[in-house]
């Protein structure tokens, strides 16, 4: 049963991610991408990482896609369509994609994965919260702070680009 559900999610992810990058209307691409994120949340549920799945749903599917759609609405016309791509480009990118997939899949298939040692992982909110802000072994306080700096710097950069010049 679990395997079947996994494959369903996997197929959804595959189809919609291909659609998202090939769609000529940017708003549709955003919606296809939403389905990809939803299916990924489903995978997390399947692994019983419930908190992670909830975060995936609220932050990515809820927040980020809405931001995408807002910025698309603000910057371009909804009915805008991209130029059709030249046949030569399609052929070359298909070849590159297939070659990449063959290399990756063959490498993955030939690798003998060792059995995971500790399957029972406590992924509750309490544990995650504790490790996120602890600074000892396995503590993630430093990455947490660096991410906040990254967001601040990106924000300032975005404001610099977007604000109107007074001079």
């Amino acid at each position: 049963m679990e395997t079947t559900i996994f494959y369903i999610f996997a197929i959804v992810i595959l189809i919609f991610s291909v659609l998202a990058v090939t769609s000529r209307r940017i708003l549709r691409a955003a919606v296809y991408f939403l389905f990809v994120l939803l299916a990924v949340a489903g995978l997390f549920f399947l692994l019983s990482f419930n908190f992670l799945a909830a975060v995936q749903l609220t932050v990515y599917a809820g927040g980020i896609i809405v931001l995408f759609i807002f910025s698309i609405m603000l910057t371009s016309q909804v009915n805008d369509k991209l130029e059709p791509i030249a046949a030569k480009k399609i052929i070359f990118s298909l070849l590159a994609a297939i070659a990449g997939a063959v290399v990756c899949i063959s490498a993955i298939m030939t690798y003998r994965f060792s059995e995971p040692k500790n399957i029972e992982v406590d992924a509750g909110m309490k544990t995650i919260g504790k490790y996120l802000l602890s600074y000892g072994e396995n503590g993630y306080a430093l990455p947490f702070e660096v991410i906040s700096l990254l967001l601040l710097a990106s924000l300032i950069g975005a404001i610099m680009i977007a604000k109107r010049d007074n001079t």
Binding site: L142, P143, V146, I147, L150, A153, I156, G157, I161
Partner: peptide, 24 residues
């Protein structure tokens, strides 16, 4: 690799705003 990746992004993404500094 987590810190490596975050450092790399902090070093790269904001610089894009400076590359486009003369946005006109």
């Amino acid at each position: 690799f987590l810190m490596f990746y975050l450092g790399l992004e902090l070093a790269t993404i904001p610089i894009a705003a400076l590359v486009a500094y003369e946005k006109m």
